[in-house]
Design a protein around this nucleic acid. Structure first.
Lengths: 346, 346
DNA sequence: ACCCGGAGTGGAACCGGTTCCACTTTTGTA
DNA sequence: TACAAAAGTGGAACCGGTTCCACTCCGGGT
């Protein structure tokens, strides 16, 4: 086990001072004679020297690192988001420290502390909803915070990148109503999350614009984790007057919801028309293929990274930004017009 | 934007020296009078002091961080593996820097350099197969390397955690042969990967033990990325004598392969019996549910982390370990006995 | 011939922790 | 009561970079 060479080793081998080596390492930090620059570069290559990140960070006071805080990588939505962000960050020479919260504010708090210790320059996060003071403190210490997917309204000056939650929910609801459905059920995340609230609003707005009454029994704002989505579906099916259409408005709940439908032997779309919020390739492989709201992950990732990196370089000084990207609705065969049979069971 | 307090601020506020504060921070590094310890802790809490990781690392020479190098987080296999590893690492106070290689040795090399700069104490990786000297150099500099899923045989002293690739392939092949199939196709990763080779061997061994000839046209070792799996399936179906059973032996290829089957209107299991290597929940939601080799991700993650953390603490001094965990075969309805109709089309 | 300015260089302080060591104060035991 | 061992403390060096600054050259303008 060898020891890695330091800048002083390089300086000695090249016959120059550490200052010169440092200036070679950081162009534009001062003049270096061309001959010496060549020699230093040669020695660096020969020794396989690489500057230690920790030393650089200590001196600079901050790291070329961003924190990525997501709920749960086993949710394909976050996994693919993370994939894009890591990839995009790498191409800008920025490393990503990944933390998961499992939707638990306590774990989130721990993660934030850790990121603070690491002196990250920015954080991209899907916040749980809690830890407001902690987020504020982070910003106060100069960490650039970008929320993606969800937001925390109480936190005034954080950038946000999300899809058009209200619109997406409204459009899919209207589509089902347009097919003749009057009992459309909605399974979505808790009202404590911005997405939960926005999607319920969109659902409600669609009903209002079509002058349809809202049955609050059909709105299920349930936790993301565990089998809450499936249970909601189960209890919806058990209703005296069950819904004829269903929107599962959160990626995290799609799997358990669909599983429950399959288990119960529900025929799609004959018994139930289904739309899910997702961009999981397997929705297409089911029979019938599920209608989906496709979330433009790439756009979310790119915008989030652009914001956080931009802020790191001091761009966008004029206060927080809110970027909403459009989510496409892809109708497939899991939705059908309401059969009269449904309404006229005597 | 405030400045975070340092250890010297704490020392001053508590009326002690930095040495004392440091000893409070690191129990067992020296004695501290109980009264002063209380006072220091009080001040730390009051100031919200947190030690800077960079400073600690610089002094220690290494970071409480591990690198996780995987191909691609949009592959659910790696996403869930990463999820478990990040989670498990966090509970041990270790952070994870995530890098993806997109199966490209060049990107892998870059990632390794970056991890070296960060002075990580360990790396958990799914190697692309290249960069042998780089891996060796990493180990030479005291970084603990654990390969998971795949390995590089040339690298003598790295720990490896994988599933029983040979056995899993052999078992699933034997299962299909047992159902009467004589033309079983295999889609798997390239022979340049250890898993590709092992799974082909298992497939071959099953044929030999059943005294079945091997048709090399039915073995497709193709790249992981892109649509290579789907294309292999397409060309298998176009064979003059197409297979009656198919094993897709790599998670990364399952999606494109199954999509192609659906597109081509192949009836499962009537036209084709199918087994996939996967532990994706959606395989269960298809009709019919797919038979799978379920890879025990949790075990892979836990063992990998145990090894890397153990080595960090100087355990397991007796050379490299190879841990193979058992993968379960879950027969579902996508496999059926070979119908006579198939063989006797006159 | 003289002075000014900029290129080029190296010394040394600094970032914020850890750790070694010397020193003082207790404590325990003969 | 005396003296060695242990507990407690603070000063200072160190980890490996970056950066400020003082200093030496050198060429060009008057």
């Amino acid at each position: 086990m060898k020891k890695a060479p330091t800048i002083r080793d390089v300086a000695a081998a090249a016959g120059v001072s550490v200052s010169v080596v440092s200036r070679v390492l950081n162009p534009d930090s001062g003049p270096v004679a061309s001959a010496k620059r060549q020699e230093v570069l040669r020695v660096i290559d020969e020794l396989g020297y690489r500057p230690r990140a920790a030393a650089r960070e200590l001196s600079a006071g901050h790291a070329l690192t961003i924190g990525l805080v997501v709920t749960d990588l086993s949710n394909p939505f976050f996994a693919r988001l993370a994939d894009r962000i890591v990839w995009e960050a790498r191409s800008h020479g920025v490393q990503v420290v990944l933390m998961t919260t499992q939707e638990d504010p306590h774990l989130e708090a721990e993660s934030l502390d850790t990121l603070l210790d690491r002196s990250v320059s920015g954080v991209i996060a899907t916040p749980t909803g809690g830890n407001i003071e902690k987020w504020a403190r982070l910003q106060d210490l100069g960490v650039n915070v970008v929320f993606v997917d969800r937001t925390i309204e109480e936190l005034g000056d954080a950038d946000v990148v999300s899809i058009e939650n209200f619109d997406s929910a409204r459009r899919s609801t209207e589509y089902l109503i347009g097919l003749g459905h009057t009992r459309v059920a909605l399974v979505t995340g808790p009202r404590s999350t911005s997405t939960g609230r926005a999607r319920i609003s969109g659902y409600t707005a669609a009903h209002q614009s079509e002058s349809l009454p809202i049955d609050h029994q059909l709105i299920r704002d349930v936790p993301f984790r565990g089998d809450a989505g499936g249970d909601a579906v189960g209890s919806l099916l058990a209703l005296p007057q069950p819904p004829t259409a269903l929107i599962v408005a959160n990626t995290a709940q799609v799997q358990s919801s669909v599983r429950r439908l399959v288990q119960k032997g529900v025929r799609i779309p004959d018994d139930l028309s289904v739309i899910v919020f997702d961009d999981n390739p397997w929705t297409e492989l089911m029979s019938p293929p599920l209608s989906v709201i496709r979330q433009p992950l790439d756009m979310l990732a790119v915008h989030a990274l652009e914001l956080v990196l931009g802020r790191m370089q001091g761009k966008f000084p004029e206060g927080p930004r809110l970027i909403e990207v459009k989510a496409d609705f892809l109708p497939r065969n899991s939705c059908a017009p309401l059969a009269l049979a449904h309404t006229t069971t005597h």
